[in-house]
Amino acid sequence: MAVRKSKKILRYSIISGCLVAVITSGVWFATYRHYNAKLIDERVSYEEQLTDKDEVLQRYMDQSQTAYVLVSSKLAGEAITESDVMEEKLPKFSSPDNLISESKLIVGKYLKIDAMPGTALTTEMVRDEERLDPSERKEETQYIKLPLRLTKRDVVDIRIVFPNGEDYIVVGKKSLEDVDLANQYTFFNDDEEEMQMLQAALVDAYINNAELYMKQYVEPELQPEPEANYVPNLDVLRVIKDNPLIIDQAKWSLAAQIRTELEKRLEAIKDGNEIHVGAQAPSGSGVIERKAVQGSTAVEADNSQSVNGIIDQTNQVPVDSSVDKGSPEVQGNTTTDDSLLEGE
């Protein structure tokens, strides 16, 4: 009887132990599945976040641009060496459009302003010369005949040619800041002396039927700046000699004599048979004709014409150079703006 009771107890103990083991295993397995599912969800969410960040980063990298930043502080007027800058990629959406992306456009240049480390350099922050000329100003012209393929940042000479074929350099090797070919505008910097030369050349364009035009350089880095050999009229020479902003006065010592000889040669051809070489006087001239060909609007005739402050007091509309001055048409009729624009 005792043996049977012991066996029964043992059997119940075994069954109870198995049930406890099964229940414990079930609880553990359920807990494992729960936490494992949660871990999988978190991993999937994390991977999705990484994927989104990679896409955003790649999008920024695709829209980035090369820039050069300073690695040390620099003062205005100091030269920039190769060790002063390093190349970096900056997001295009948050960077200025005029960032310098080539080291050759920076090394050897001079800073215009004080700059701290990490400053991304732009075209407006550097210049070729160490110091600015005190008289340097921004120049805007519309009276110079431009090459048909002229572009922004081209380097040019501004020249003048007289009706007798004499050709002179007015201003040499100017870097254009901007160009508007449709309206024949150009923009560049010049100093006091160059400004005086341009204004004097404009007067010659009116009085002596000369033409101002630009010539582009082939390789400006390899070609030196020429010596300007244009001599303005005697009144302008007197202004130059009294102008304290023009330092180099020595080169103008013989200018009056040279100009006098030039005017004698020009006077010799003023017998009624002189011709225009290229464009006429700036207003209503061949420059305007070129604008018309390119689709610009006609210029209204004005009895008092002014270009850069130079006023034509003749109260006449300029005559087209393609018509002989001795013909009855020129003697009896005033040329209209429409005929000028049509080249008639």
Rank of each mutant, 00 (worst) to 15 (best):
Q196W: 03
Y32M: 13
Y230N: 13
F29T: 10
E289K: 05
E211P: 03
A30L: 06
F187T: 04
Y46Q: 13
L198I: 04
R153T: 08
Q65F: 01
D312S: 09
E129W: 00
K38H: 10
S304V: 09
I14R: 15
A298D: 15
P232W: 07
D338E: 08
P328H: 00
L234R: 12
V293Y: 09
G278W: 02
E221G: 12
N183S: 02
E289R: 14
S175D: 08
P232F: 02
K109H: 07
L148S: 13
L105I: 01
R43S: 02
I288W: 05
M197S: 00
L176H: 07
V3S: 12
S306N: 06
P220M: 02
P328I: 07
R131L: 03
Q65L: 08
N229G: 05
E221L: 12
I113Y: 15
T122N: 10
E329H: 05
Q184N: 09
T24L: 11
K89D: 09
I160P: 05
Q216G: 09
D97M: 05
F29N: 10
I269Y: 02
Y60S: 10
A268M: 02
I258M: 06
G284I: 04
G286V: 01
V22A: 15
V231T: 15
M1H: 15
E124S: 15
Q249Y: 00
V203L: 10
V299G: 02
A205E: 04
D97W: 03
V71M: 06
V20P: 04
K264H: 02
Q316V: 07
A210F: 09
M1V: 05
T141F: 15
S83R: 05
I113W: 07
P96A: 09
V44E: 12
A115P: 01
